[in-house]
Structures are given as C-alpha cells and as structure tokens.
C-alpha cells in the first residue's frame, strides 16, 4: 500500500507539470461546459454534448494517459529505478491506474453535473463511466507495456483511441458503422448512457462490455508476460 501511494503521489506531482497529460483530463470536461451552454439547437436531444463527450472522454483520456505514462517511464528508465527500489509491477500499475481513475472521476463529476443526473440515474451514470474508465485503462496499459518507447506507444494509441472514442459518434450517422461498433465497449457505454432514465440496462450491453473486459485482461497478461515492465 505504501508503494502504491508513493507511485500515486509521484504521478500527481508529475502530471501537474505535464501539460500533455493534464490536457487529456481537462479537454472534454471543459468542452462540455462550453458546448452545453453555447450551442442550443431546437431538435437536439437533451444534454446531447454531455452524453457524447462523456463517451469520448472515457474512450480517450484513460487510454491515452495510461499508455503515455507507462511508455515514458520505460523510455526514460525511471520505471527500472522504481522496480530496483522494490516497487512491484502490480503496485506500480495500481498506483498509476488509481491516479488515472481519480483524475477521470473528476471529469465524470463534471459530466454528471452538466448532464443533470440525479438519484438512481446518477449512480448508473457513475457505474457506467467507471466501467469504461477501467476498460480504457486496461487497454492503455496493454499498449504501454507492449511499447518500448513513447513514439511506439503514440503510434498505437492514436488509432486505438480513435476507434473507441469516435466510433460511438460516427455510428449516429451510419448504420454500417453502428453495426461494426456494436462489439466495442465504448459503443455499448454510449448506448447505456443514452438510455439512462428511459430504457432498462440491456443484457447485450453488459455481455459485450464483459467480453471486452476479459479480452483486455487476456491481452494485458500476454503483453506483460512477453514484455514485462522493463
């Protein structure tokens, strides 16, 4: 626990001075406040931007941050020093993961407030967002562990992040894209968030999200066994 806290606090200090990471946490929460207040179109669904940006935020921020943090530590050889200081790989990953989760939780609070969620709807929104954050963190960790340096990580992260964060938006305009996007957790998160307060949680969404989770865990295990954290 001591080492997890040390890694967590290290990341807090570091991110406050790292604009590239900081902007990932701030961009969509700031954007949603601006857009919800500035854009009013007659036929637009209620809190359209809050729902849209919440899914994009979940598909982008945790994934990008996890891969960026891990790959930078590998490239700069700071991870090696932590490991030599008796920080276990699991402690490091929990520390970083907890940090990214907390930062994304602040964003979730903004989306919940702008989206006007209360009571059971708020609890469901937070649960859906939390599941999405954890899934994206796992995906980002897979990329971070697999990549030797930041450049490799970025070249893998960008297309993966585009798929998870933009497919739900694109699927609103194209049925073929929507059919293809169904297998991704972010599309299912989008459907769950859009259905809050109006439709019951679909078993299909839960199953697909669970399958995505299992796949992410398997991929992470494979990446970790092959590459470790060195």
């Amino acid at each position: 626990m001591k080492n997890i806290c040390a890694v967590f606090l290290k990341q807090v200090s570091d991110t406050l001075k790292n604009k590239t990471i900081l902007i990932q946490f701030l961009m969509f929460p700031v954007l949603v406040i601006v857009m919800e207040n500035a854009v009013k179109i007659d036929d637009m669904p209620e809190h359209f931007f809050a729902k849209l940006f919440a899914v994009m935020f979940v598909g982008m921020a945790p994934l990008t941050c996890m891969s960026a943090i891990i790959s930078e530590e590998k490239e700069k050889n700071t991870l090696r020093v932590l490991m030599m200081s008796n920080v276990k790989p699991a402690e490091y990953l929990f520390g970083i993961g907890a940090y990214v989760f907390v930062m994304c939780a602040f964003g979730t609070v903004v989306f919940a407030a702008v989206g006007g969620y209360t009571g059971a709807d708020l609890a469901l929104f937070i649960a859906v967002m939390s599941a999405g954050i954890i899934l994206s963190e796992l995906t980002g960790a897979v990329i971070g562990v697999f990549s030797r340096n930041q450049m490799t990580a970025t070249s893998i992260t960008v297309p993966v992040m585009m798929i998870f964060s933009f497919l739900p938006m694109l699927s609103m305009f194209n049925d073929t894209v929507k059919a293809a996007a169904r297998v991704t957790y972010s599309q299912q998160l989008s459907e769950l968030i859009n259905g809050i307060g109006t439709t019951a949680i679909s078993a299909e969404s839960v199953i697909i999200i669970s399958i995505n989770f299992v796949l992410a865990v398997v991929l992470f295990t494979v990446a970790y066994r092959r590459k470790g954290l060195e």
Binding site: K10, S13, D14, K17, K76, N77, T78, R80, V81
Partner: peptide, 9 residues
Amino acid sequence: DNFGLYERL
C-alpha cells in the same frame, strides 16, 4: 548510466 530521473520534477 541508464537509470533515469523524473525530469519535470
């Protein structure tokens, strides 16, 4: 030689 430092800190 290859032990890194947190450069922003």
